[in-house]
Each structure stands twice: as C-alpha cells, then as structure tokens.
Simulated assay, not measured.
Amino acid sequence: MTGELSIPVQGGALATPQEYVDFTEAWLANRRLSANTRDAYRRDVRGYLSWCGEHGVEPLQARFTHVNEYGRWLESCVDQRTGRTIAATTVARKLSGLSSWYEFLHKLGMIPANPVTGADRPSVERDHSATIGMSPGEVDALLRAAADDSPRHHALLTLLADLGLRVGEVCKLDLTDLGHERGHRTVRFSGKGGKPRRRALAPGTAAALDHYLQQRAAQVHVAVEDLSGPVFVSESGRALDRHAVFRLVRRLAERAGIPSAAQLSPHSLRHAFATTARGEGVPLEDVQDAMGHADPRTTRRYDRDRHNLDRDPSYAIWAARARRGNAS
C-alpha cells in the first residue's frame, strides 16, 4: 500500500494499514479460494486502498459515489501486457471482489452498509468469452511448433490443449500427481477453489509427457521414477510460472504462423478444448465436468461463442454472391 492511511471507523477507532491487511486476510480465510485467486484479491484490495489514500477517500466511510469514481478510474487504466485499457470483465471482477470485501466488513459491524451495492458496475457480455480462441488446425500447428522447440514445451502445451486445464493448474503439478487408475493414465490436481480433481491422459498426451520426463531424467542421470518435484521445471530446476507459459504460447504461436498470435494466451487452449470437444459431439455436461465449471452457463458460453462464428450469416451472403458470380 502506498502512503499511510489513518481512517476513522465506527466507534471512533482508527484503522491502520496493518489492520487493513488483517481485515483482508480474515476475509480471504473465510472464502474457499485457490492461492492464485487469493493473491489476485489481495492485489485488488491493495490497489483500491492505495487509490483511496491518493484521492483522500476514507475506505470505511466510502459511499457508492466513491466506488463509481474508482470504477471509472480503473476503466481508464492501461493494461501493460496489451497496451489497451483494462477490459470491462477485469473491472467487473475487481469490483466484485471489492464488494465481497466490504460485505465481510459489514457483517463484522465495521461499516453500516456495503458501498459497492449501489455502484454502477460495467456491463459484461455473457454470450461469449473474451478469450481469443483457436481452431483445431491452429492448435495442431501450435503443438507442432512446440514439438520442434523442446519435449518440455510440447508436453506442457499438449496438457493445456488436450485436458483444457488452467495454466495455474498445470504449473502447480507435482510428479506425485501422475498415476495409473483402473487402466487409465491419470493426473490429479487442485482445481478452482482448491477442489481436488482428476483427469485421464489420452495416449498421445501421455506419450508427450513421457518423452519429456525421459529427457529430463537423462539430463540429470537418474531413472524417471527417481525424479521428484514439479512436473514442469525451468532450466534452473524451479517450477515454471504462468508468465513464462504466457510468453511461450505467443512465441510458438508466432512461429507457427497463427494470425492471432499476439493476442493468444494459455487460456486460448482451454477455450479451444471446449469448442473442439463440443464440435466433436461431446455432451455439454461432460465438457462441464472436464473443465471444472460449477455453473453449466459458463460452459455454454464457450459453445455459444463457437456457434456465433460458425453460423455467422456473412458466410451465407458471401456464398450466395459467389454462386451468382459463377452463374453469370
């Protein structure tokens, strides 16, 4: 947090920066969240408190008008990764987390009401995903580029593509998470909210993973079964982080000649997993289970996004014009 905050709360007491840290940690401890989500919420609250300090707003006396002002400020901020202003979905997520934080303080009796409740939140389109998707052919091209690059990168992107895992889930995989169950090669991991999950590895996925682990074991002169620690490690032996995977996807997508390479992310492979599975006739509920979506509406969003493009009337208009041109 930037600067010192001296903020009167109910009863005339003062809340110090450390007390706000304590409030936030207590709030997070009362929610079932993954470590990555907790970190994101911490950053969001810290950013809001910094904004309050810079604008002379007392957080525990904030009104919905202050939250509106903060929301408009967020909308004007530039995302350093993209060079564009922050997406409406990101602003909505930050305000949602802030609302939960305030609601927790309200239940503790620290504030009379949640100021985010009456705030004007950005409208978020629910009919399609903001993630730039990929066609099956583009995924194939990306995996070929990964195979040419290194066994590690091929195994990593194959897991993302074939299982539709979140990048954080893949980065946290440990070798003890790999196993065999009822004739299947499997991987166990913690999903969103810390929920334990299990997925099967298809033959090609398992082969890519085995090839990488065999190479890794040979480099340190041990048997594969004697390897330990994270599944995917850097040259220094530390677990790969999501930022490294983000850069990897874009670098290999550019090498593969994918037109949208500069806009892709690891989540693009998760998006492609959902749309490809539905295109191959996999039932919606099976895709929902595989992706770990608690709400089927989240899975349907990917499906609608696929149909919105595949069934765009512009293709019919173009085809009709082409037929007329050929007939004349």
Rank of each mutant, 00 (worst) to 15 (best):
L105F: 06
P112K: 15
L74K: 02
D148Y: 05
S6Y: 02
V224N: 02
D177M: 05
C52Y: 02
D312E: 04
H128A: 12
S6M: 13
D174K: 02
W101M: 05
T24L: 10
W318Q: 15
A206C: 04
E75L: 15
K195C: 04
C52W: 02
A256T: 15
L213P: 08
D22M: 08
A62G: 06
C77F: 00
A26C: 01
A322C: 09
A155R: 08
W51P: 14
Q214T: 15
A92P: 02
L178R: 10
A274G: 07
R46K: 13
G12Q: 12
Y212F: 12
V91M: 10
D149Y: 12
G118E: 05
A290V: 02
T158Y: 04
D177P: 07
S99H: 06
M291K: 04
R43M: 09
G281I: 02
G257C: 14
A327Q: 10
T37N: 08
G237R: 11
V245K: 01
V170S: 01
A217V: 03
W101K: 00
G164H: 00
R270W: 13
C77A: 08
D22F: 06
A294T: 10
L157K: 00
G133M: 04
S6E: 14
R199Y: 06
R250W: 07
F23H: 04
A256E: 12
N30K: 06
G183Q: 02
N36C: 00
T2N: 01
G168R: 04
R126E: 13
L49P: 11
E225Y: 01
H128W: 13
L227T: 03
P151Q: 05
R121D: 01
I7G: 08
R81E: 08
F64N: 10
H154A: 10
L108C: 11
R93E: 08
A161P: 03
P151T: 00
V78C: 03
S135A: 14
L248W: 07
R242W: 00
R247Q: 13
V57R: 01
L173G: 08
R323D: 07
V124I: 02
A35K: 14
H153N: 14
E254G: 15
L28M: 01
L60N: 11
P230I: 04
P283W: 00
L33W: 02
P136E: 02
R166V: 03
Q288L: 05
Q10T: 15
L201G: 04
Y20N: 08
A155Q: 09
R188K: 07
Q61V: 08
D286T: 05
R72G: 01
V282P: 07
P136M: 03
G292N: 10
Y315L: 11
R300G: 14
A208R: 09
L201M: 10
H243T: 15
P8D: 11
A13F: 06
R84N: 11
A239D: 05
T37S: 12
G109D: 03
A320S: 15
L98P: 00
D289Y: 00
T89W: 07
L156E: 06
A218F: 04
R32I: 04
Q215M: 07
I258N: 03
A207T: 11
L240F: 13
V57K: 02
S96M: 12
A145D: 10
